[in-house]
């Protein structure tokens, strides 16, 4: 009974996706509104997992929806709409991070095992997380730094898994990789993260 309900809800979901795509391709405003309403949280959350800043994540999410609106005539339904939207969100976030790195904005190559959290980073974290205690803000800053220290692929796979709770198969579809590659990426990401955080723990960063 539960299985039948799941299959039915999945079919409804696919029909809904198809209606959104058809509406968007016909240039209908309600379809775009529905798209934004359906995927807004998911896109903002994914971007936030990648850039760790709410304002930047919202700006990126806005760019993602504009890109979806512009590219939807070329969308051929080879993958699910949500997979395609995730892919655009990840690519936009990675491009943003590359640009920021090129401009030398914010983290200036300081290692996680180094001198700990700089005051400016901490101030940033505090302002973007009002109400959070100093220790929590410090912890968040260290965690974000450790995640940022991962390779692009490891970071993307880890973020999609932890922030969006996507299955390995869904991540493989988004990243256009094999299932075993995703498993390996996430395993290595967790090991690297643990190593970085242990180094910090030993130096009593917090």
């Amino acid at each position: 009974m539960v299985g039948v309900l799941c299959v039915n809800s999945y079919r409804e979901f696919l029909v809904e996706e198809e209606n959104i795509i058809k509406g968007l391709q016909a240039g209908k405003e309600p379809a775009f509104r529905e798209l934004v309403g359906t995927y807004q949280q998911m896109v903002v959350n994914t971007c936030f997992g990648m850039v760790h800043n709410k304002e930047d994540a919202e700006d990126l999410a806005q760019e993602v929806f504009i890109e979806v609106y512009r590219s939807v005539p070329a969308f051929r339904s080879d993958s699910k709409l949500s997979t395609w939207v995730y892919r655009i969100a990840v690519n936009k976030s990675l491009n943003y991070l590359r640009d920021r790195k090129r401009k030398g904005f914010r983290f200036s190559g300081e290692s996680i095992s180094g001198a700990g959290t700089s005051l400016s980073n901490l101030a940033d974290e505090k302002s973007s997380r009002p109400g959070a205690g100093l220790e929590e803000a410090q912890r968040a800053a260290l965690l974000y730094k450790a995640i940022d220290g991962l390779s692009e692929k490891q970071k993307t796979a880890f973020t999609l898994n932890k922030y969006e709770e996507l299955s390995y198969k869904e991540i493989a579809n988004v990243m256009e990789l094999s299932l075993s590659s995703v498993e390996s990426l996430i395993h290595r990401a967790k090991k690297n993260l643990q190593k970085k955080l242990y180094a910090c723990y030993k130096k009593r960063c917090i």
Binding site: V36, G37, Q40, Q41, N45, A57, L143, Y201
Partner: peptide
């Protein structure tokens, strides 16, 4: 325990409140 508290940040940060004027 330290690692658990640090990783718990992800759970707390997940799904930030979205701007109502987003659309």
């Amino acid at each position: 325990k330290d690692l658990e508290s640090t990783l718990a940040i992800i759970e707390k940060e997940r799904y930030p409140e979205v701007n109502p004027y987003f659309y």
